[in-house]
Amino acid sequence: MPADCPCCAGEALPGRRRLLLGALACVAFPGVAAQAAAQPERRLHILRVQTGDRFGGVYWRDGCYDRDALRRLDWVMRDPRQAEATPMDPRLFDVLNAVALRLDAGGPFHINSGYRAPATNALYARRSSRVSQISLHMSGMAADLSLPGRDPVAVARVAAAMQVGGVGLYREGFVHLDCGPARRW
């Protein structure tokens, strides 16, 4: 087995949470499983709007996740308010990859919210009743995004049709995607 896979490697990644998330990542969503199995590599292109940080490249190959790529993605997806990163659930990246493939997206997802530290989430929840007190953003399982040149309604419809997690459409022009239970709002 490749040594760079958090779900396959004999060497545990730092922290029980990363190991658990890696193990969960091995359980593919039914709607994504066939598409992912056919891919020799999984790529992702994202731009973090607030920081200008980017990731563009392969995060999964030869049947396993690339630990270095996951660390870089964790940093790009960090909470810029707190300068705090957390291990993101790799299944979120699989959801983004599957949606990008289905849309034949050439450009990067523009991420305006990835991981949220509890303090940041509490601040947002005080400002808006639409922010969940137990948001999947705090678990590294969600992203709010846009895809330049694409209608957010179309992005949300494609993601919802795939049945691969939560999909929310916001009038501000962004889409919420997560790797939690399938649901829509």
Rank of each mutant, 00 (worst) to 15 (best):
C64A: 08
G166C: 02
I46Y: 08
G149N: 03
N97I: 09
M162T: 03
R116G: 02
D74S: 01
R72D: 14
A69I: 00
A83R: 14
F93R: 00
W75Q: 11
L101H: 13
Y65I: 05
G140M: 01
R42C: 06
A161R: 15
V164T: 10
D62K: 10
S139F: 14
P148G: 02
R67S: 08
H110N: 15
V27G: 05
A156I: 10
M162A: 11
V158L: 14
M162V: 10
D62P: 05
P30C: 07
D66W: 08
F55Y: 12
V58Y: 09
G31V: 06
R67E: 12
V99F: 08
L147K: 02
V158D: 13
A85L: 02
D53F: 04
V76M: 07
A122Y: 11
H45K: 13
A36M: 12
A98P: 14
A33S: 04
F109N: 05
H137S: 01
A105Y: 13
A28Y: 14
N97Y: 15
L103V: 04
G165I: 00
V76H: 01
A33Y: 12
A85N: 08
R71H: 13
A33T: 03
V32L: 11
L145Q: 05
H110M: 08
L136M: 14
R43C: 06
A100V: 10
A83C: 11
R42E: 14
D79H: 00
P108W: 06
A161T: 09
G52N: 01
Y115G: 00
C26I: 12
D62C: 09
L123G: 13
D53V: 02
R61T: 09
L123P: 15
A33D: 13
R91Q: 06
G165N: 06
